[in-house]
């Protein structure tokens, strides 16, 4: 398996504050990798270092085989960045903006096709100023992918989306992944990471505190399950057995039955709590 991003011992200080404290990370080519973490954990700093926006104080970083501390045009043309907040190009139409940005790249995608891909064909000749927040984010994504990048960074892409817009956005990310791109995503939404990511990493206090598939993160798959029913609740390693026993006791249907494993959110919250002690 080839790697798109390799980070070893990354550090970054802001004055006396250690924002990133020896972080190791590895993103495989073609996967969707989500980075989770509370505000101030070093998430944005880390991503901005990977994007070539910010310098680092220590550690080894390779993004597509290149040191992002010394970005070149050729390297920049292989990555796509979807910014967190941008209100630029308000007076241009969607199509004008996409065509213009496509001209920066050596082998861009067809701008009209990208517009179609993000579902803005009907709005292609509308000025960006007049778009809704969700449509505006789609333009950001379109601008991030129009250069046909091998690696795409998405920084909290669905903040402020309604649930329907978020679902549509997820489909878009899936489609980009199917095109063969590697996607690095930061998000505050655990269900988003669960829906999209092949692997997630949780950053707390400038370090990775857990890394793995969403389903197994932090021992989630093997954790005790909680079985709840109308008259009680029990935590157990063998929920199936418990349900069978209950079924016998009630002679069939168990009233108010629920079997629950820790959600990604439960695991996440326990992970970011732990290093504070």
């Amino acid at each position: 398996m080839t790697t798109a991003i390799e980070v070893q011992g990354l550090t970054k200080n802001y004055g006396d504050v250690r924002a990133v404290a020896g972080l190791d990370l590895s993103v495989r080519q073609g996967e969707v990798f989500a980075i989770l973490g509370p505000n101030g954990a070093g998430k944005s700093t880390t991503v901005e270092i990977l994007e070539g926006y910010r310098s680092r104080d220590g550690g080894e970083v390779r993004v597509l085989g290149h040191d992002p501390g010394h970005p070149t045009r050729a390297w920049r043309s292989r990555i796509g960045i979807v910014l967190q907040t941008a209100e630029d190009a308000a007076e241009l139409t969607v199509r004008e903006t996409l065509r213009h940005f496509a001209s920066y790249y050596p082998a861009p995608r067809d701008p009209d096709e990208v517009i179609d891909r993000v579902g803005l064909t009907e709005k292609a000749d509308v000025r960006i100023r007049k778009l809704s927040g969700g449509q505006r984010r789609r333009v950001d994504v379109a601008l991030g992918v129009v250069g046909n990048p091998e690696l795409i960074f998405l920084d909290e892409p669905t903040t402020g989306f309604d649930p329907e817009a978020r679902r549509q956005f997820w489909e878009l990310i899936e489609a980009l992944k199917d095109d063969g791109a590697t996607i690095v995503l930061t998000t505050h939404y655990l269900e988003e990471a669960e829906a999209l990511a092949d692997r997630v990493a949780v950053i707390a206090k400038g370090r990775i505190v857990a890394e793995g598939e969403p389903a197994t993160l932090g021992g989630r798959a093997t954790a005790k399950a909680r079985v709840t029913w109308a008259d009680g609740s029990v935590e157990t390693d063998t929920p199936t057995k418990t349900v069978l026993e209950l079924s016998h006791r009630y002679d069939g249907e168990i009233p108010g039955l629920a079997v629950r494993r820790p959600t990604l959110e439960d695991v996440y919250l326990s992970l970011i709590e732990a290093p504070r002690d």
Partner: peptide
């Protein structure tokens, strides 16, 4: 440590657009 990465360069053969043309655009 040697960090080896190999990713198929989609754009290796294509040339970067000329800075003069981009300035005008």
């Amino acid at each position: 440590t040697d960090l080896t990465t190999s990713v198929p360069a989609r754009t290796a053969s294509a040339k970067l657009p000329s800075p003069v043309r981009l300035g005008l655009s």
